[in-house]
Computed example of a mutant assay.
Amino acid sequence: MTVEKKGVTSDWLAVELDGNHHPSRENAVVAASQTLTDGLVVSLNANGQVQVYGGATDEVAAGIFVGEAATGVGETAKGVIVARNAKVVAEKLTFKSGLAGAKQTAALADLAKLHITTVRSA
């Protein structure tokens, strides 16, 4: 599985909610056999662990990964995702290599339900 690295967090994250009540970020467990990069759209597996969003019919985008993590077979790791209440630059997000435009649009619609909305690039 290949993902393309596009830049740093400040390239894709325009605004996020800080604070104690409903912060934008959430700690997460990275699933086994994953290579996650900053700005990558992710989903959750059956165990609630973060994985690359692949666009499967029943798959739902759950957030955007912050930082980098790589796990081997049978390994998990700690990570952070933007899980709610943020504005992002869609053109700067990263998707699984080869993911069709319609699947990317579906992922952005899933994120919008989490109040992660897009802004235009400057």
Rank of each mutant, 00 (worst) to 15 (best):
M1R: 05
M1I: 04
V3D: 00
E4Y: 03
K6I: 05
G7V: 04
V8F: 05
S10F: 11
L13H: 07
A14M: 02
V15I: 13
V15A: 12
E16G: 02
D18N: 10
H21W: 08
H22C: 11
P23Q: 01
V29W: 01
V30P: 05
A31N: 11
S33H: 10
Q34R: 10
L36G: 01
T37F: 08
T37M: 03
T37L: 10
G39D: 02
G39I: 06
L40V: 04
S43E: 12
S43V: 11
S43W: 06
A46S: 15
A46P: 01
A46C: 03
N47G: 08
G48N: 04
V50Q: 01
Q51A: 07
Q51N: 06
Q51I: 14
V52F: 00
V52H: 04
Y53P: 08
G54E: 13
G54Y: 00
G54F: 00
G55M: 12
G55P: 05
G55I: 10
A62F: 07
G63I: 05
I64C: 03
G67A: 04
E68R: 12
A69R: 11
A70I: 14
T71E: 08
G74I: 05
G74E: 09
A77D: 10
K78Y: 04
K78F: 10
G79T: 13
V82Q: 09
R84Q: 15
N85Y: 10
A86C: 06
K87P: 00
K87M: 13
V88W: 01
A90V: 05
A90I: 00
E91R: 14
K92A: 15
K96Q: 15
S97D: 13
S97Y: 03
G101C: 00
A102N: 12
A102V: 15
A102C: 03
Q104C: 11
T105E: 15
A107E: 09
A107Q: 06
D110Q: 07
L111H: 09
L114Q: 12
I116M: 08
T117V: 14
V119E: 12
R120I: 00
R120E: 05
S121M: 06
